[in-house]
C-alpha cells in the first residue's frame, strides 16, 4: 500500500497537536501542515506581553523548525489554502498548487470578528490575532499615547493590561455583543467596568458610534451619539469567528464553523475539523457548540488525529460548561485574569 498522505490546514494549537498525534500513530505517513501565516506557531496569549515589551518576539514562538524536520512533518508556511475538492480529494492552494490527500484535518482557527457596522472602517482599526498584528500595535504605540478600544472581548482585557503598563491613556466603549465568548450580563458588565476604572481606564458610555474619521496619520476622530472623541489608535475587539469562508462552496456543512459530529468527523470520509474553526455536535444537547480557546483546540486536534488514524474517541464536554451567547452555544477553555 502506498504511503498515506495527511494534510492539515492550519498551524495553530489544534493543528500542531493533531500533527503530533498523527505522527505518533502513523509513522509511515506523509504529513503536511499548511499555514497562510508566514511565521511559526505562536502562543497567542503572550501577544499582549510582547506589545508591553515584557518579552521578545522570539519568545512568542513555541517550536523550532528543526522540530518539524525531526517529526518528518512538512511545514509549509505562508501558503494559503483557497479551496478543497472533496470529490477528487485535493487541497488547492493560492498559488495554484494541487495537493492530494487521503486524510484531512481542517484547523483554521478563528479570525477577528468585526460587526457589520464597523466593516467600513476595517483599515483604520487594529485587531490582535497574530504576531504581525502585534508588531503593528508596537509600531503604532511608539507614536501615540491614547488608545480607544471598541468592543471588549477577553483579548482586549489582556491588551489593556499591556497598554496600561506602557502608560497609555485607554478609553473603552463596551459594546453590546462585546464580551464574546462570555455573555455580557449586568453583573459581568459592572464587575468589568469597575475593574477597568479602578485601573485608570475611562469607560465611554454610548449607544452607538456614528462616524470614525482619520484626521492625521496618528489621529482619529470618533463620533458617538453623545460626544466626539479623539484617539491615536482604535482597536476593535469583538471576539473571533471561525475562519472557514474559503470552504463555503466545497460542500462541507458550515453554520458558524464547520459542523462535525462528536467524533469531529465532517460529512466527508476521513475529513475532520478541530479547534476554533469547528462546531461540534453534542449528543446530550442535540445541538452544536463552538469551541474557543487554547486548551480546547489542543484536545480537539488530538482527538481528530486519533480518529483519522483509526480510533473512535468521542469529545467529552459537560453540558453545563457550554454557554449561550447571542444564540450561539460556546465552550471555552479560555480564561484570562484582569
Amino acid at each position: 500500500m502506498s504511503m498515506k498522505r495527511f494534510v492539515i490546514i492550519g498551524n495553530g494549537p489544534a493543528a500542531n497537536h493533531a500533527a503530533k498525534a498523527l505522527r505518533e500513530n502513523s509513522s509511515e505517513s506523509r504529513i503536511t501542515i499548511f499555514s497562510k501565516d508566514p511565521f511559526r506557531s505562536y502562543r497567542a496569549h503572550l501577544l499582549p506581553d510582547f506589545i508591553a515589551g515584557l518579552i521578545k518576539e522570539e519568545d512568542l514562538y513555541n517550536s523550532s523548525y528543526a522540530h518539524y524536520n525531526e517529526m518528518d512533518i512538512n511545514l509549509r508556511l505562508g501558503q494559503r489554502v483557497v479551496s478543497v475538492d472533496f470529490s477528487k480529494r485535493n487541497v488547492i492552494l493560492d498559488h495554484k498548487e494541487v495537493v492530494p490527500f487521503d486524510g484531512l484535518i481542517v484547523a483554521t482557527g478563528g479570525k477577528p470578528r468585526l460587526p457589520e457596522q464597523f466593516q467600513l472602517f476595517q483599515d483604520i482599526m487594529l485587531t490582535l490575532k497574530t504576531p504581525l498584528d502585534a508588531r503593528m500595535w508596537v509600531e503604532k504605540l511608539s507614536n501615540v499615547d491614547s488608545v480607544l478600544i471598541i468592543g471588549g472581548d477577553l483579548t482586549s482585557l489582556s491588551l489593556t493590561k499591556a497598554l496600561l503598563k506602557l502608560h497609555k491613556r485607554v478609553k473603552f466603549i463596551l459594546n453590546d455583543d462585546a464580551f464574546w465568548p462570555v455573555p455580557l450580563n449586568e453583573e459581568i458588565y459592572r464587575a468589568v467596568t469597575g475593574r477597568l476604572e479602578q485601573r485608570g481606564v475611562e469607560i465611554v458610555h454610548c449607544r452607538r458610534i456614528r462616524r470614525i474619521t482619520q484626521l492625521e496619520e496618528n489621529l482619529l476622530e470618533v463620533e458617538t451619539d453623545r460626544e466626539i472623541l479623539e484617539t491615536g489608535v482604535l482597536g476593535a475587539f469583538f471576539g473571533l469567528v471561525p475562519d472557514v469562508g474559503f470552504l463555503a462552496r466545497t460542500g462541507l456543512d458550515i453554520d458558524r464553523g464547520i459542523l462535525v459530529d462528536e467524533f469531529l468527523k465532517t460529512r466527508f470520509a476521513n475529513v475532520y475539523a478541530a479547534g476554533d474553526c469547528a462546531q461540534v455536535y453534542h449528543p446530550a444537547l442535540r445541538d452544536y457548540w463552538v469551541s474557543i480557546g487554547h486548551e480546547n483546540a489542543t484536545a480537539l486536534g488530538r482527538i481528530a488525529a486519533l480518529n483519522l488514524a483509526g480510533s473512535h474517541f468521542e469529545v467529552q464536554v459537560k453540558p453545563e460548561s457550554i454557554l449561550e451567547v447571542g444564540g450561539v452555544k460556546i465552550n471555552t477553555s479560555w480564561w484570562t485574569e484582569f
Binding site: 503536511t32 508566514p38 523548525y65 518539524y68 524536520n69 512538512n74 511545514l75 509549509r76 508556511l77 505562508g78 501558503q79 488547492i92 492552494l93 498559488h95 495554484k96 498548487e97 494541487v98 495537493v99 492530494p100
Partner: peptide, 18 residues
Amino acid sequence: YVPEDNSLLSVLPPGAQV
C-alpha cells in the same frame, strides 16, 4: 495548476520564507 510533486514549495525547508 501544478501537482504537488512538481511544486517548488512542497520541497522547501520549513523555515523558508515564500
